[in-house]
Each structure stands twice: as C-alpha cells, then as structure tokens.
C-alpha cells in the first residue's frame, strides 16, 4: 500500500511540475516578443503582419491563447511546423531517437568514468591521486563541449582519420560526439561522487563497519558506495536537462540528426511553433527521467519509502 501511495505522490508531483513548466515556457516565449516580425522581416506591411498574426493565432488575448495551448496539449497536439509544413510531433519523432542515443551514451560514459574517478579521489582525499582526479573534473567542467568536439575532429578525424567528422549511421559516428558530450556529466559526477563519498566515509556507521573488522573493499563497495550514490543519482536526473542543451551544440558540430540540430534549423527559419514544441518535449523528457529517478530513489532508500 505504501508503495502505491509513494508512486502516486511522485506521479502527482511530476505532473504538477510539468504543467507549471509548460505554462512557464508559454508565457516566457509569448511575453518575450512577437515572432511575426521575425518571420516576415523588417519590410513587412501592417496588413501582412496582421494576417500572419491571425494565422498563428497571436491576435487573440493572451489567456485565450493559453487556453488553446493547454487544451491542445491535453489532446497531445503540439501544433504544426512552419518550416516543414507537417505536425510538430511528426517532425520531432523522426529525430528523437538519435538524440536519446547521443545523450544516453554520453550519460553512460559520464557515469562509467565519473563514479570510479570520484571514488578514487575520495579514498585518497588530500593526496596526489585526489588532486589529479579533481583537476581532471574541474577541467572537464570548464570546457565548452562543442569546442572539445571540434578539437576531437581536428585530432581524430582530420589528423588521424580514425573516426568520421560528422553524420550518423555506424557506432563510429557516435564516438566523437558522445565523448565530447560526456564531459558534462563526467565532471559533475566525479565531483559529486567525491564529495558525497568523503562525507559518507565520515559517517559513524562506516567507522562502525571498520571496527567490526570488515575489509577496506567491503566497506567501500558494500557500505559507502550505495549510500553515496543517492545524491549522484539525483544529479543524473538534473543533468538530463543540461545534456539536452549540450546536445544542441554538439549536434551542430557533428551534423548529428537529433533534436538539437532540429532546433538550430527551426530558429533559422523562425519556426516558432516547432521551437515551442521542442521546449515542451524537452520538459516532458526531463520530468519523466526525474520521475523514474525519484521512484528509483525510493527503491534504494527504505527511509524514503516509509516516509511517504
């Protein structure tokens, strides 16, 4: 029963956040300006502008537009793209898997390298190994991912010719973009694993486990890892948004056919409806991933389950 209650609570919270997020997106973009002048350019006449506004429904009062926006969303209608002259969802659908593949690979790489590096740093806190690991993490955090992408292209495509410089298709196409993008989660995961782990290592139950004669490995992996993983798991959820953003520039560098390059195309053609649909899809993805993570959290930490 408590499990069901827990799931229901989390689901409700996620839906509320999603509703607020898409509303926020609607008002921010409407209040930031009128896209018609951007679409038509500075030379358009008043009549042309008025006609375009009517076509896009921008001539109606704001709240009435909002009502239409929400009711359409509830029927899973994301509007029509100006550039592709097709439904936005249809356009997005053709690109979304490529984005998930890229962002997912980057996240996996980030965790696979970040967690051990952070654990290593925490176990050697204050010593040289810690300094080196922490330096790698800070450096990773300080790099524009798309710049790293270009440098990787220079080295591994132009010079060495090991990997293709762009497009998609084989696993070889995925390597460079995924590695570039993975620096975002890797740096964060390393730093957080380190600080979370070194905090957990100070907990009395760790001293108690050692006092009970458990070996270093049993303490580190059997007791410290799971406990220090909790904030890291939360971070992975929060990073989902950052990854989607990072993917936009990385996709631009590698001509990767995902949502990011779609967004770049959309903004060039002033395709306001498509851009709005992309923001909404991004928000849905973010909220869904974080919902899964919240539920996972309950699976790992019995205290949270019981608190619900």
């Amino acid at each position: 029963m408590t499990t069901l209650r827990f799931i229901a609570l989390k689901l409700g919270g996620a839906l509320l956040t999603l509703f607020l997020a898409v509303s926020l997106a609607f008002f921010i973009s409407r209040l930031s300006g009128d896209p018609t002048t951007q679409i038509l350019g500075g030379l358009a006449t008043q009549d042309q502008i008025a006609a375009k506004q009517a076509e896009l429904g921008l001539d109606r009062p704001l709240l009435s537009q909002y009502w239409t926006f929400i009711t359409d969303l509830l029927q899973f209608d994301l509007g029509r793209s100006l550039r592709f002259n097709r439904g936005n969802w249809e356009v997005i659908q053709s690109r979304i898997m490529a984005s998930f593949l890229l962002a997912g690979s980057a996240m996996v790489l980030g965790v696979v390298f970040g967690v051990p590096l952070g654990m290593y740093a925490a176990a050697r806190e204050g010593k040289r190994g810690d300094r080196i690991a922490s330096a790698i993490a800070v450096l990773g955090q300080s790099m524009p991912v798309f710049w790293l992408g270009m440098v990787l292209v220079l080295v591994f495509s132009v010079r060495l010719g090991w990997f293709p410089a762009g497009q998609s298709g084989t696993w070889k196409h995925l390597v460079l973009p995924a590695v570039s993008l993975s620096t975002i989660p890797m740096a964060r995961v390393t730093r957080l694993t380190r600080s979370s782990m070194s905090e957990v290592l100070e907990e009395p139950y760790i001293a108690a486990a050692r006092a009970r004669g458990l070996g270093g490995r049993a303490v580190m992996f059997g007791h410290a890892l799971k406990n220090s993983a909790l904030p890291v798991i939360t971070l992975i959820g929060l990073q989902a948004g950052t990854l989607l953003s990072g993917a936009v520039t990385v996709e631009a560098v590698f001509a990767w056919p995902g949502l990011g390059s779609l967004a770049t195309q959309a903004v060039q053609f002033r395709d306001a409806p498509l851009v709005q649909a992309l923001v909404i899809v991004g928000a849905v993805a973010f909220v869904a991933i974080n919902l899964v993570i919240d539920l996972l959290y309950g699976l790992i930490d019995p205290r949270i389950r019981d608190a619900a």
Partner: peptide, 12 residues
Amino acid sequence: MALPFLLLAIAI
C-alpha cells in the same frame, strides 16, 4: 529547471 536552457533560449 525542467526547461532545457538552450531550447528555451532558442524559443526566446
């Protein structure tokens, strides 16, 4: 926080 910043920026 649920709105990916670059996409929101592009929208604005």
